[in-house]
Amino acid sequence: MSNQNDYDRIERNAKRRKLIKNTVIYIFLAIWGLMVLFPFYWMILSSIKSYSAYSSEYIPKFFTLSPTLQNYSEAFTAVPLGKYFLNTLIFTLCTTVLMMVVIILAAFAFARLEFRGKNIVFALFLSLMMIPNELVIITNFVTITDLGLRNTFAGLILPSVTSVFYIYLLKENFEAIPEELYKAAKVDGTSDFKYLVRVMLPISQPTIVTIIILKVIECWNSYVWPRLITDNSNYFLVSNGIQEIRENGFGRENIPAMMAAVVVISVPLIVLFLIFRKKIMAGVSRGGTKG
């Protein structure tokens, strides 16, 4: 009988310990979640406070009792945010598509083709990675200005249609694909290009999706280069637009309207990430070869 009680006691203890452990873990996770989500909350909160309410708060409040959507309409009316949005979309799509074409072909050449000076060229490419972006931005500016491409989409897009880092990343990925697949595809009657499109790209899909997402985010958030190369508001991107809205207040920065614009701009990126997150996680299972 006492035996039975012992077991009951052990079981109860184990349950209690597990409960405590879980509680602690969840408390920590909750704190962590709050820390991560707070900036988003602050952004949305600020965007629905009215300009006057926001300005009158000496110490910003953590909530608002009179939410308003007025900032959103102001963000779109004070500056042509719709137009900037479209510009950013064009810029992002063109840059990403062009860059993908460039880096896929370059990575294929480095990974699969044999040509004279391949290693030297690749070493030169890699050495480019060690030069910080800020260092080349002036020379890029001079080059683009000399080409007469200021205030054009071409001028915006051109400097970022290649990326040594992504070429390197993709080349490593391509090289991990067994040589036999190339031979098999050759015997099966494919050209090099078809092999790239039908075999290499699908197999490297996780890496490619990752690169696309990173590049889209990079384009969407780019600020320095667009700011530098455009002074005509027809070619402004959203990042410039945000600055414009901020400077638009009555003697004081119009933070609520700016936050409203930020919310609008972040939504597409968040949606994009949520869609592709599973794609990245799922990956393409590796298999089909042995040995």
Binding site: A185, V199, Q205, V284, S285, R286, G287, G288, K290
Partner: peptide, 8 residues
């Protein structure tokens, strides 16, 4: 020898 099937 290692089959070289297309894994995708």
């Amino acid at each position: 020898q290692n089959y070289a099937l297309y894994p995708h």
